[in-house]
């Protein structure tokens, strides 16, 4: 279908623009350096080297992904409008919705590439360390859990980039998009804990009110629950998340991202480029 051809073409040039951006090189180099130093840090610990290795590796990958999302990806969106390169796209038979989808898939393809590269490198490092020490130190280590954690990380960035697209469609500057996206990320990571606290301790301690509960519930509905994607602690101890949980999470990611893209394309339809 022509529409798909167009979207794929836009995904392609978005991907190329991103890959050739020097900021990406910088992030990749930093991430690789961090992975290399993880080998040193792991040796500082006593027993659970497997746990430490997984913690360090997964945290590096997440961190690199955050840098990529908040700096390179947001820039790709805002640059298009600031530098007027969006005219190259909109002067072709693209609908605003196709533009949004094409850019989003371009951002995602950048994420997948980066995470794949870092997974391979970190996996190699873990393999290397695992084979150079006694089995006892990696007794809770599991490749399956490691892979599952990577999958969860990728799902989180699928959703976070949809958030980025959404805020890019509203805001007029890269700074505002970064601000709102980072704020959403932080709230999204914390909301589950806060809600848990409110529904548990606060009720028993007596400082909960109907209004507070309503507020918390609305927040949980609107804000993405990013902490559901964080299974680093489980993975580092070789604990696998259930298939049901994984499937539920995938469903949640898809629907929420689709909703965000839907809103983004409608907002974007209303925008004018002068």
């Amino acid at each position: 279908m022509k529409s798909i051809r167009r979207i794929v073409a836009l995904t392609h040039i978005t991907f190329i623009e991103g890959i050739r951006d020097r900021a990406l090189y910088g992030i990749t180099i930093v991430a690789l350096m961090m992975l290399a130093t993880n080998i040193l840090f792991t040796n500082l610990f006593g027993h659970e080297l497997g746990k430490i290795m997984v913690d360090l590796n997964l945290s590096t990958i997440s961190f690199a992904g955050l840098l990529l999302t908040f700096f390179v990806n947001i820039n790709l969106m805002s640059k298009d409008i600031d530098r007027q390169t969006i005219y190259c796209v909109l002067s072709k038979p693209f609908s605003r919705g196709e533009y949004i989808v094409g850019k989003y898939l371009g951002l995602l393809s950048l994420m997948i590439t980066a995470i794949f590269l870092l997974t391979v490198c970190s996996g190699g490092i873990a393999w290397f360390v695992k084979n150079s020490v006694a089995d006892y130190f990696f007794r809770t280590f599991s490749w399956t859990c490691y892979a599952q954690a990577i999958l969860y990380i990728m799902l989180m960035f699928t959703m976070l980039n949809a958030v980025v697209i959404f805020f890019s469609s509203i805001s007029t500057s890269a700074f505002l998009t970064v601000l709102f996206s980072v704020a959403t990320y932080i709230v999204g990571q914390s909301i589950e804990e806060v809600a848990f606290f409110f529904k548990g301790e606060a009720v028993t301690a007596g400082y909960s009110s109907k209004f507070n509960e309503f507020l918390i519930d609305s927040f949980q509905y609107v804000v993405p629950n990013f902490s559901a994607f964080d299974i680093k602690t489980m993975a580092s101890h070789g604990k696998l998340m259930s298939m049901n949980h994984t499937i539920a999470l995938i469903g949640y990611t898809v629907i929420y991202s689709l909703l965000l893209l839907f809103f983004a394309s409608h907002i974007f339809k209303r925008r004018e480029f002068n």
């Binding site: 051809r5 167009r6 190329i16 623009e17 005219y87 190259c88 072709k92």
Partner: peptide
Amino acid sequence: SAYYYDHLTVLELMAFSAITSG
């Protein structure tokens, strides 16, 4: 104002223009 994607080559730019026009 002639602004085009910095990191693309003219070949890639043309390919994009052509593919999206079918």
